[in-house]
Design a binder for these strands. Structure first.
Length: 555
RNA sequence: GCGCCCGUAGCUCAGCUGGAUAGAGCGACGGCCUCCGGAGCCGUAGGUCAGAGGUUCGAAUCCUCUCGGGCGCACCA
């Protein structure tokens, strides 16, 4: 990785810190932020306001004294001022901003990346849908979020494993088999009873037909007790394949597919109970084995092993997380729907009992999606017979739009997706807005008659100092923000910050494009602008790439 | 009843660890193609940040309560 220049924000912060030290003033935390109004400057610190009380002096006085001898590199900073009630504002030097183009063009794909998490081994577990049905829109949000979060962490140098947990050992698999069995029987005898609580949905009938096509009436006379395994395995395998195919098409790739059943093959459940017992977190009551969860932050104690001797869902899941820990992950991130928020507390309690650090598990909870269709709001749940399948969504609005839409809202907002609107694929779609900016840049280069002016072949021009138009400065400032935006998004596990950023960046680009002509006669100026255009294109592509969205050359 | 999440412009949503006159997109209204793609750009209108208290030099942001919506409260998974 090329040398990365010191970020001005950090430089500003450092300068304030050392000035505070000189004056022997307190310096616990130094806030540096983007002023709401760009007229106030590029970075601003309210430190003087915070110090007014402990120092018992007016904030403006404090600010003036801080600014009097602030050690700021003139290559990076221009004007420094005290404004309003005592804010210290600094403006970036045009030269600094112009050089951002060089940074981007030389660092190319590594611009915005960092190695600050390079020692971290992080497991991101997501989707983890049971193979009892096809993926629907809820899983899609999970997949889009999880994959984007994993990418963001990778961008900061972390070693990330994307993992999928298949609950293939529980009773729901039996129910799946029984459901398919009933539909299979119904192909000959429509009055054959469907099991109570069985899986509704057309896909069960499809599975039954597939089995008939494959095995004919071979199972027709066999009693259910003798063929339940065959039905369960057939259906599970088919669903598994279908899920993988959907995810593949959705451009989500997992390194590890973990089967719950693997936890039963050795003594991992027993070992987990033993560990919890060592921690004094297990007791027996009413012939069941309990986890003393209430002592670890949960509302009440939880059963690990039922009276029947069967483990609950919780036990293998604790064993699974214990397994992740033993595999050496520093952090485990689980992407869970809102119906799991209580479960997250339970799991953290269990991991706390095992002695893991409190933030070893970082659950990301996302709220349910509502659909707006024909002007009516439709809520979706797994049990609802109304499901919007991921594959249908991809057919309707495409992978790019689906992925973008599902990460553009914060996870904890109850988002409403207007299906009619999304299907329309028109200009109101922010995805196209961003992609269009990228394609437009390609188009400019397609019209370039002097290929030697393209920075991709000719390198960075010497004329970057000609980028002085206001729209250019604004665009440069936006490009300079990218590394901070991506780092913050990674730390917060919030991919929606990237979509917000990309829309702003695209807007800055379109504004510039309308204000200034890129392909001008004047060679140095044209080359400077072409360089800015390329730099913008790289960042657009990188940002979209973080979200798994393509950056088309033309549309 | 208890727990978690949410309540910001007509609609969908941003607002980063509290900071200087609350933002964007869509929709509405009015403009801009002899000029690198008009999938674009410019302008106008539109908000008691659900409500009430509190903390603070400063609150959409933190705390408490109320109201409204979602989700969860199994020896189901």
């Amino acid at each position: 990785m090329e040398t990365v220049r010191i970020r001005p924000r950090e430089e500003f912060r450092t300068a304030i810190r050392s000035r505070l030290a000189e004056l022997s003033w307190p310096s616990e935390e130094i806030v540096v932020e983007r002023p709401g109004d760009p007229e106030h400057g590029d970075w601003s610190s309210p430190i003087a306001l915070a110090l007014a009380r402990p120092l018992k002096r007016s904030p403006r006085e404090i600010a003036a004294e801080l600014v009097a001898d602030l050690d700021l590199n003139p290559d990076s900073f221009g004007e420094v001022s005290v404004a309003g009630p005592g804010f210290i504002n600094v403006r970036l030097a045009p030269r600094y901003l112009q050089e951002v183009v060089r940074d981007i063009l030389t660092q190319h794909e590594s611009y915005g990346r960092s190695d600050r998490l390079k020692d971290r081994k992080i497991n991101v577990e997501f989707v983890s849908s049971n193979p009892t049905g096809p993926l629907h829109i809820g899983h899609a949000r999970n997949a889009a979020l999880g994959d984007a979060i994993a990418s963001l962490l990778e961008s900061q140098g972390a070693s990330v494993t994307r993992e999928y947990y298949f609950n293939d050992a529980g009773r729901q698999m039996d129910m799946l088999g029984a459901s398919v069995h009933a539909r299979y029987q119904q192909l000959w005898d429509p009055s054959f009873p469907f099991p109570e609580g069985g899986y509704q949905g057309e896909y069960i009938r499809d599975l039954a037909k597939a089995l008939r096509d494959e095995a004919g009436d071979r199972w027709l006379e066999t009693p259910i007790e003798e063929c339940s395994t065959a039905f369960r395995e057939f259906a599970g395998e088919r669903m598994n394949t279908a899920i993988r195919a959907d995810l593949d098409r959705f451009r989500v790739a997992f390194e590890v597919w973990f089967n719950e059943s693997a936890l039963y093959t050795d003594d991992r459940l027993k070992a987990t109970i033993a560990d919890l017992k060592d921690a004094g977190a297990v007791y027996e009551d009413d012939d069941a084995i309990w986890f003393r969860a209430s002592e670890f932050g949960d509302a009440k104690d939880r059963v690990l092993v039922k009276r029947t001797g069967q483990p609950t869902y919780l036990l293998p899941d604790i064993a699974y997380h214990r397994d992740k820990h033993e595999r050496g992950f520093d952090t485990a991130i689980d992407i869970w729907g809102a119906d799991h928020h209580d479960y997250a507390i339970r799991m953290r309690a269990a991991l706390g009992a095992l002695g893991y650090p409190p933030d070893w598990l970082r659950p990301v909870i996302y709220q349910q999606i509502s659909l707006l269709e024909d002007g009516q709001e439709v809520r979706l749940s797994t049990r609802s017979d109304r499901m919007v399948l991921l594959q249908d969504l991809m057919d309707d609005i495409g992978v790019d739009v689906t992925r973008y839409f599902l990460v553009m809202r914060k996870g904890d907002t109850h988002m409403v997706l207007d299906l009619d609107l999304a299907r329309r694929q028109t200009e109101e779609n922010p995805v196209y807005y961003v992609q269009y900016a990228h394609a437009r840049i390609s188009s400019v280069f397609g019209r370039l008659e002097e290929p030697a002016w393209d920075p991709e072949t000719a390198g960075v021009p010497d004329s970057l100092d000609l980028l002085t138009a206001q729209t250019e400065i604004d665009l440069l400032r936006m490009l300079d923000d990218y590394p901070d935006v991506i780092a913050d998004a990674a730390d917060a596990l919030e991919p929606h910050r990237i979509t917000d950023y990309l829309e702003s960046l695209a807007r800055r680009f379109h504004l510039w494009y309308h204000g200034e002509h890129i392909l001008v006669e004047d060679e140095p100026l044209a080359r400077a602008r072409l360089a800015l255009a390329r730099a913008t294109q790289y960042v657009l592509r990188a940002g979209l790439g973080q979200l798994g969205v393509t950056a088309p050359e033309s549309m």
